[in-house]
């Protein structure tokens, strides 16, 4: 078992540098991803948290080159993949796999589970038939299903089982990076944890680098060592999960954390200082000057309206994009509006 320090010291497997994904050209493109940098090492899970439309799914897709980037670089295992094409791109896409929220749409209803896995093993790995049959059973067992299920069709499985099949298919090509986009949000609570535990086990077993995209902060906490908080196409705060959750520095992270129903706090009868944000989650088409969070920020000051804050290093591995990070104090002042 590696310690945290060793893990951080190794070279990252997947990196993005100042990545930008703009939609629609011209003077006013939609900036879905606007200057995001990240690095994920083998065996590490980085959480990407944000609300709808913040650009987190686009970022995930851009990382495996399913979206064209407008600027910045993607580096895999030390090699620049930004402009890769042809066989290099296909090889890269095999080493980085993605799983999605909806396991229903992801599986072909006319294809038995065994046939779906067999197809991947034949096309992407070029294995002979006997080898494919053996691997199919191995894969199903790796995700906690019986090998005998290979002959069944997607509709014969529950939502949780289908997500297991989707994971098995992603593993079939022996990827090194797994991008999981809201992998449990469509599942029942009692089943969610089964899938989360499966992902934790597979991460250990295959030493996967994982980007875990989700809106559920408790789920992200359970899965990730490091987290990044995204708002309006930008990373507004990142750091070790422990530190970010116990002492969030960006006002948005604070609001997000305080908005989550906290069962433990309720059970202990603790009253929480909840920050209820006014206003709406911005759409990417909106023009916001200065700090993108300023229209909703309870701590907003004049400077925030005029000047966009850079993502600044606050301590080792901890970066925050707020002019007043570290100076906010505990209560939302002075402009907190309570309706």
């Amino acid at each position: 078992m590696k310690t945290e320090d060793q893990r951080v010291a190794v070279r990252p497997l997947l990196e993005a540098h100042d990545l930008r994904v703009y939609f629609g050209g011209g003077k006013a493109p939609l900036k879905a991803v606007d200057g995001v940098s990240l690095a994920i090492a083998r065996g590490e899970t980085v959480g990407l948290v944000g609300e709808s439309g913040c650009g987190k799914t686009t970022l995930g897709r851009a990382l495996m080159r399913l979206e064209d980037s407008t600027g910045g670089r993607i580096v895999f295992d030390g090699v620049d993949m930004t402009g890769a094409a042809g066989r290099r791109l296909r090889t890269f896409r095999r080493r980085v796999q993605m799983i999605f929220q909806d396991p229903h749409g992801a599986l072909n209803p006319r294809m038995s589970v065994g046939a779906a896995l067999d197809e991947v093993l034949a096309v992407a790995r070029g294995l002979p038939a006997r080898e494919r049959r053996r691997r199919t059973v191995e894969l199903l067992e790796a995700v906690g299903l019986e090998g005998a299920y290979a002959g069944r069709y997607p509709h014969e499985f529950s939502g949780g089982q289908r997500q297991r099949i989707v994971i098995a298919r992603a593993l079939a090509v022996e990827p090194e990076v797994l991008i999981a986009d809201e992998p449990v949000s469509a599942l029942d609570v009692s089943v969610q944890v089964q899938i989360l535990n499966l992902l934790r086990e597979l991460r250990r077993r295959f030493n996967l680098a994982m980007l875990f995209i989700a809106h559920d902060l408790a789920v992200v906490r359970y899965m990730c060592e490091r987290i990044m908080v995204m708002y309006y196409g930008r990373i507004v705060e990142e750091g070790p999960a422990e530190a970010v959750y116990s002492a969030p520095e960006h006002p948005y992270t604070r609001a997000l954390l305080s908005a989550v129903p906290d069962l433990d706090a309720s059970l202990e009868g603790r009253r929480r200082n909840r920050i209820i944000l006014k206003g709406e989650v911005p759409t990417l088409g909106e023009r916001i000057t200065g700090c993108p969070f300023h229209p909703r920020c309870p701590w907003r000051r004049a400077r925030c309206v005029e000047e966009e804050p850079a993502l600044r290093e606050r301590s080792a591995g901890r970066r925050v994009a707020c002019h007043f990070a570290g100076e906010l104090g505990d209560d939302a002042e002075p402009e907190r509006e309570v309706k």
Binding site: V193, Q194, N197, D216, A218, R221, Y222, D262, D264
Partner: peptide, 16 residues
């Protein structure tokens, strides 16, 4: 089975 905001480390178990 509900992951907790403040939970650290330990494995949460679902319902089989």
């Amino acid at each position: 089975a509900v992951p907790r905001l403040r939970s650290v480390g330990g494995e949460v178990r679902g319902i089989r």
